[in-house]
Write a protein that binds this DNA or RNA. Structure first.
Lengths: 258, 258
DNA sequence: AATCTTGTTCGAGTAGTTCGAACGGTCGTC
DNA sequence: GACGACCGTTCGAACTACTCGAACAAGATT
């Protein structure tokens, strides 16, 4: 499913989305007003005003503190979108379990439109706090879970994803060359799981295993991540992968019979 | 802030929202196609097609199984909307704690546009499974938490809310008369917490306490709910309210100093 | 094999959006 | 205390761009 070039988009709807996007990007305690938004988006005040009024009647935006912020109707949509994914419903308890037994941060990621989405995360006792948030979008080549997904996808699919999104770096260790990527993906496919050695965040290591369907194609992945000095040696290369593969396998079985 | 009558809404944006709404209402494993949506919304196929293409490039909608479903970009927006509310961030650990100590289902609700929103829920060991979901909207007069919020709001505000949303019933016990409502609210305001005796779901009882700001106006509430035969007598009228008020008070303190 | 779907594209007509100007209100400053 | 600056809001006119319907290929169903 190549993302269509999308001739003739609905521009009016896009400006509404642009307003939502601006409000999402806004700082925590900052609430934007009509004029602020109009300036940022290069639109007339009256236009922004009209869009905001419409968004408000649908609960997508709410007045707050002399400005506007995202409305909780979006929470309804977002959580519905997530619970429609069987992967979430089934992986969640396993992710909790892994976090409890390993004490580290455990994530379940899904792939959508060539990007990764952090579906659900559970914190173990010793888990580090990173900037990752549930719902966040990321690049598949930058994480252990993402690479595990790519390694279990048809090569042409990976080619198209790289064509579209490139291989942006986040740390000196991030894979930035196509050749390196495919070389690693091959080894990951053989091994069945992937490592991340400070490729997305300095000082952070991770292991990721794919969740594959009955045709061996990945629909998501789970990962365990923690500080490099704790995730190393046999723990990183043996113990955690074992736990991870066990959990991933259980999820796969439950997925095919649901 | 009376919800404005909203002259001149942006109709084009509204049809985009209507499409999202339809996809949200859709059954679990049902994925709607262009023609389905066009039929349901009374629009031309080509119109729906164009909207879907636009929604897709923004990740709000994704192709799946020969149709479309809500995209995970909505999860990003929704979770951001929630974490922008200090109430959520601060109440969450207390809700977890209450669920663990009582063993029942504990909810944190917020008020928005005269309706309640289930911000966060935690399940205790014995907690019942209800139809309530995080992100769901409800009526304030139908639940313990909602009534606690209404009881700690200016009377004129409550009047406007009832004018706008009415007092729809969910069970034979739901409050449906204005007089009954205000009578109860008065007692709740005195007492400091509210009960729900099968007013939203048959066989379900609950206690709710408001989270108020420094002016005594409620911005949200937390509640404990469980089967009527377990939530009765002193446990319902003494023990649980005590725990609840303690937790609510802690949340309030943390909220004012954040 | 024929027929009824499906999703897709495109042109024409007009419905609806955008802009700008003007209003009243509120805040801050001189 | 009055002025000026900025805010959000409303409205009319101009023209953008959205909606519809028809027509197409591809696939499913009969």
């Amino acid at each position: 499913m190549p993302v269509e070039p999308n001739k003739r988009p609905v521009k009016t709807a896009e400006t509404s989305f642009a307003i939502l996007e601006q409000l999402k990007e806004a700082e925590e305690e900052e609430s934007l007003g009509v004029s602020d938004l109009a300036r940022r988006l290069g639109l007339a005040k009256s236009t922004v005003h009209r869009h905001l009024a419409t968004l408000q009647t649908h609960g997508l935006v709410v007045e707050h503190d002399g400005g506007y912020r995202l409305g909780l109707r979006l929470l309804d949509f977002g959580l519905r979108a997530r619970s429609l994914r069987p992967l979430y419903e089934i992986a969640k308890p396993k992710v909790d379990e892994l976090a409890a037994t390993t004490g580290e941060k455990v994530w379940c990621l899904a792939e959508e439109q060539g990007r990764s989405v952090h579906l659900y995360g559970a914190a173990g006792k010793h888990s580090v706090r990173t900037t990752a948030r549930e719902g966040e979008r990321g690049y598949l080549h930058q994480t252990a879970a993402g690479k595990a997904i790519l390694a279990h996808a048809p090569r042409e699919r990976v080619e198209r994803i790289v064509d579209e999104h490139g291989l942006p770096a986040r740390t000196p260790n991030t894979i930035t060359s196509r050749d390196d990527l495919f070389e690693q993906l091959e080894r990951i496919a053989d091994r069945g799981y992937a490592f991340n050695r400070e490729e997305s965040i300095p000082g952070l290591h991770a292991v990721g295993a794919p969740i594959t369907d009955d045709e061996g194609v990945a629909t998501g992945a789970i990962s365990i991540s923690g500080p490099a000095n704790r995730l190393k040696g046999d723990r990183l290369t043996k113990e955690l992968p074992d736990l991870l593969l066990g959990a991933a396998n259980e999820v796969e079985i439950n997925l095919t019979f649901s």
